[in-house]
């Protein structure tokens, strides 16, 4: 996952891109004949210092390699932002980035 976290004033602006095909049921059915092959990120969270700052439950209708932009307060330069996603098949990925 690519994460950019930047402090502007007292607000941290985050832009993150998860590398994921985000296939829908229809796409999976066309490709393999089985719509249960669909796979997409179902839940994504971001935290700093063990505090959740972003959380989303997601569906197959996010774009391929989905981008998430959000803002939060209460952290400073050098703090580490940790983002984790889980997909429909149970795969999970955690990435970190320092706030600049």
């Amino acid at each position: 996952m690519k994460i950019k976290a930047k402090l502007k004033g007292n607000i941290i602006h985050v832009k993150a891109m998860a590398k994921h095909e985000m296939s829908t049921y229809n796409q999976a059915e066309k490709r393999s004949g089985n719509k249960e092959d669909a796979n997409f990120i179902t839940h994504i969270t971001a935290s700093v210092n063990e505090k959740t700052v972003f959380e989303a439950s997601t569906s197959q209708f996010l774009s391929k390699n989905p981008i998430f932009k959000f803002k939060f307060k209460g952290a400073g330069k050098g703090d580490v932002l940790t983002m984790t996603w889980v997909d429909r098949k149970g795969n999970t990925k955690t990435s970190t980035s320092k706030i600049k």
């Binding site: 985000m22 829908t24 505090k51 959740t52 700052v53 972003f54 959380e55 989303a56 439950s57 997601t58 569906s59 197959q60 209708f61 996010l62 774009s63 989905p66 981008i67 998430f68 932009k69 959000f70 803002k71 939060f72 307060k73 209460g74």
Partner: peptide, 18 residues
């Protein structure tokens, strides 16, 4: 999608959808 807004968090999100 459903965003859970953290305590004291503001709603200011950008995503890409199909």
């Amino acid at each position: 999608a459903v965003f859970t807004v953290p305590d004291g968090g503001s709603i200011d999100y950008n995503i890409k959808i199909k």
